[in-house]
Structure formats: C-alpha cells, structure tokens
C-alpha cells in the first residue's frame, strides 16, 4: 500500500525529475566546455549555483504534490482511499526526498568531474594538510552534513505540505492563506528554537569534533551544539506532521 503510493508519487513527477536531471547534465557539460575559456576557479565556483535552487524546487514541488491532486480531481481518489493519512503524507515526503537525494548525488558526481578537470581536486589532494585529515573523520562529517541537509529539506517540505493542506480548509483566498501560513511557520520555528534553548537547557548537549590544522599539526577541538533548540524544533515538526495528518483525515474536503 505505502509502496504503491510512493511509486505513484514518484511516477507522477517523473517527467519533471528527468527534465531537471537532464538540465544538470547539460549544465555540467556546458561548464566543462568553458574550461579553456574561463578561469578554472570561476568554472569550479559557478558549478554549484544550481544547488541554490534545490530548496526552492523542494518547496514548490511539495505544494504541487498536493495541489495537483485537487486541480486534476484525483483528490476524489486520494481522499476516498481507506489509507491512514500518514501513508499519503509520508509517501509524498519520501518521494520528494528521493528526488532531492538523486539530484544531490548527480550534482556531487558532476562536481567531482568539474573539480578534477579544473585541477582543483588534484591540488587539494596533493596538499600536505589533506594527508593529515583522518579518513574516518571525513566520512563521519560527510554523513553528518548529509543528514543535516536531508533534515532541512524534510522540514521545508513538511512546512509547505502543511501550508497547502491548511489552505484547503478555506473556500477563498487559499493562495494568501498558504503564503501566510508558510511565513508564520518560519517565524514559529525561530520562536520554538529560542524556547527550546530556554526551557530544554538541561538536556545533554551534543559535541562534534572539529579539525583544525595549525602550523601543519592537526588538532581536534570539541564544538558544543545545544540540543535544546534542536529537540524543540524536532518536536515542533512532529506536532506539525500529526496535525497535517489529522487535517487530511478529518477536515479536508474535495
């Protein structure tokens, strides 16, 4: 059931996903062709620009995943299915994140290609500092960054889903309601994290090892990350998700 729903969400956006993937490939090829024309640093820097559009795409597509159901009347099918709301919402979220991960991997692969062709990668690998970085730490940091990025995309997507579904409770000014809900949510996340900092200070903090190379000697330092705001924001999104499911299951109409 979940699997079918997930497959359906991915398939219904396959055209768009393939188009973007194609565009990324073309973008990489274009920059590779500029290698002899532009400075290598310029090519290496410009390459990452599409990365900036990715959150915007995630935001837009999260709304589209729902808006399309109503616009094309398939909401009649979606809402008449005997599935709990979380099946639908999580399948839509998972489909979006699948696409995001795909794009990020594609950008990373292209980035590796561009960097190695510009010589930036070689220079980096040849530097004595690079040799000092423990591989284990590098893998850990990459995974950590990946997880943070994924959580960020999930938060953006969830807030967008919520804003759209909430706007469906109104018969007029839906666009306005959606935009204001979104703005309010962003503001709320800020307040909630402050509140978490104040009230959840007693929670054990998280420490991340950061690496500094001073005069050719690698040194690790422990960086403290307050867990209060993180836990508060996570709880906030948990609540938002529960509310989203409740709205979809009990209040929303075709």
């Amino acid at each position: 059931m979940w699997w079918q729903q997930y497959k359906k969400e991915l398939m219904s956006h396959r055209g768009e996903i393939l188009l973007i993937a194609g565009a990324l490939v073309v973008w990489t090829a274009f920059l590779l062709s500029r290698l002899d024309v532009w400075l290598p640093q310029v090519v290496a820097g410009t390459y990452w620009v599409p990365m900036g559009f990715l959150p915007l795409w995630a935001l837009w597509t999260s709304v589209q995943l729902y808006r399309q159901e109503w616009r094309e009347n398939t909401a009649y099918l979606m809402l008449s299915l005997p599935a709990r709301a979380w099946v639908i919402t999580s399948a839509k979220l998972a489909a979006l994140l699948t696409a995001v991960v795909g794009f990020v991997l594609l950008i990373a692969a292209g980035g590796w290609l561009v960097l190695s062709r510009t010589g930036v990668l070689e220079a980096l690998a040849a530097s004595p500092e690079f040799a000092m970085i423990p591989r284990e730490w590098m893998v850990k940091m990459a995974l950590f960054a990946g997880a943070v990025m994924l959580a960020g995309f999930a938060a953006v997507a969830l807030a967008a889903q919520f804003a759209y579904v909430f706007s469906r409770l109104f018969s007029r000014f839906r666009g306005l309601v959606m935009v204001w809900t979104w703005i309010l949510l962003v503001w709320l996340v800020g307040r909630v994290s402050e509140l978490g900092w104040l009230l959840l200070g007693w929670l054990p903090d998280i420490y991340v090892r950061s690496l500094h190379i001073v005069f050719g000697i690698p040194e690790f330092a422990l960086v403290k990350i307050e867990s209060g705001p993180i836990v508060a924001v996570a709880l906030f999104f948990g609540g938002l998700y529960t509310l989203l499911n409740a709205m979809l299951e009990r209040a929303v109409e075709v």
């Binding site: 398939m11 009347n73 398939t74 008449s80 299951e249």
Partner: peptide
Amino acid sequence: PSPKTKAMVAYLPEIDYLYGWM
C-alpha cells in the same frame, strides 16, 4: 466516515478522478 469506513465503501464519482498518465 474514517479510513475504516472508507474500506467498506466503493465510490464512483461523476468526474474523472483517475490518474491520466497511468
């Protein structure tokens, strides 16, 4: 009406409610 009753109901709407690309 809830997911539980929806499992007991087969609903055919008047409009086209199926995914066109399938």
